[in-house]
Design a protein around this nucleic acid. Structure first.
Lengths: 127, 127
DNA sequence: AGCATTGTACTGCTGTTATACTACAAAGAT
DNA sequence: ATCTTTGTAGTATAACAGCAGTACAATGCT
């Protein structure tokens, strides 16, 4: 079962943090296709947020075909894996990296620092 | 002169992104004490945001004694050194890297690929 | 059939973010 | 003195985020 962590000081909306963590959890293998997510009510209580906030996150992921919801039963990770063409994949990688590095540099961080931090994240994830 | 970059998809308020980039810009040496910042009107036009938004960011930084404003003249970096604490700087680095990696991983990229791409960007910049 | 569980939908409310627009105030140059 | 540039202050408006509360709908279990 995935553990959600909210950062209220980041300014990032709660429902978006939940969305990101689910997506991240899927690609990192923490969440597997078919697995059931916490119920909207359970997660609302656990994270001490409103039922609507969880519902909003789940609904957006359902629209993107990442989750599948069954009323009365629960919410599940969708089975469909969508393959992306190599060319598009490469372009996307460059695009998001360029954009990210621009932002990070504007905060005054060097690419060296960024790369190091990403490696830290990588190692801490494997534990 | 510092270059501001806004990320509208991050969920972080524009005025806060400006605040952060100025603060971290000072710490990294991109902005030096006494240096003049863009005028509220100029920056509003450049970033295509409202005058109020820039003003809000500048005002908050003035309250914190990071900026000094002189009506009719402009806004300047305060001389008193106000380096961002190491802990906060580290935290910010981690925050943006975690968020970025979350997005990048959700696209199916590995951290290895991402690091490689960032290094490519680094070398291509030096040419 | 009845019940509990689950997701959905809605209203009302608060606070934040951001916009547009207008007007005023202080400094400097002419 | 006048004009321009600068920051400041205000109103009004809209969108979004989040909460509380209520009610409804579908599923599955007993």
């Amino acid at each position: 079962m995935i553990k959600f962590l909210l950062d209220y000081s980041s300014g990032v909306p709660v429902y978006r943090q939940i969305i990101d963590q689910i997506r991240f959890g899927i690609t990192s293998g923490q969440l597997k296709p078919g697995e059931q997510l916490p119920t909207v009510r359970a997660l609302a209580v656990e994270l001490k947020v409103s039922l609507n906030t969880i519902s909003k996150a789940y609904r957006e992921l359902e629209i993107k075909n990442i989750l599948e919801t069954q009323q009365g039963t629960g919410t599940f990770i969708n089975n469909t894996e969508q393959a992306v063409p190599d060319k598009e994949r490469e372009g996307k990688l460059e695009e998001i990296c360029v954009q990210f590095s621009s932002v990070a540099l504007s905060y005054g961080f060097t690419l060296g620092e960024i790369v190091q931090e990403l490696k830290n994240i990588e190692t801490s994830k494997k534990l």
